[in-house]
């Protein structure tokens, strides 16, 4: 499953970049995020509660950043285990460019689900992921504008 999109964030690029690397900001913006711990500059562990169709689970997983090119782009990859609900994993390239009124954030990547999620939730995944991404960026734009 592929996902891509872009959003205009009303903040300078340096601010947006800093927020993208700040676990506290991310925690506040990721829907259902219960915890996010920084293990190193490029690795986090996270706990996210999510509901996709009839499957609801808490996903524990790791997030890793690579191909870091501050303050322009990085690749964010994550995978989460939802216990008997299955697993989800994905990665996306996130790029920032200056634009009138702020910074344009563009993301493109792919996601995959397995187990019960794929079995009974698969056709709801795309819609759910799109919705969650929308919620995330709305909150993220707000957080960046504040700082």
């Amino acid at each position: 499953m592929e996902l891509s999109g872009d959003v205009l964030i009303p903040a300078p690029r340096a601010v947006v970049w800093a927020a993208l690397n700040d676990p506290d900001v991310l925690k506040g913006c990721i829907p259902g995020c219960q915890s996010i711990e920084k293990e190193s500059d490029t690795a986090f562990t996270a706990k996210v509660k999510a509901k996709i169709g009839p499957v609801s689970a808490t996903f524990g997983g790791r997030v890793a950043l690579s191909e870091i090119d501050p303050p322009n782009s990085y690749v964010i990859a994550g995978e989460g285990q939802g216990g008997v609900a299955g697993f989800g994993k994905g990665s996306a390239r996130v790029s920032l460019t200056d634009e009138d009124g702020g910074t344009r954030l563009t993301y493109a990547g792919e996601a995959q689900v397995g187990g019960k999620l794929a079995q009974i939730g698969s056709r709801l995944v795309q819609g759910t992921v799109t919705k969650l991404a929308g919620q995330f960026f709305a909150a993220f734009a707000k957080a960046c504008a504040k700082s």
Binding site: Q112, G114, K116, A118, I120, S122, R123
Partner: peptide
């Protein structure tokens, strides 16, 4: 099944 071996038609919905 999808290419990863996930059972896509895994319920009476599908």
């Amino acid at each position: 099944y999808d290419d990863n071996g996930q059972l896509v038609t895994g319920s009476l919905m599908d």
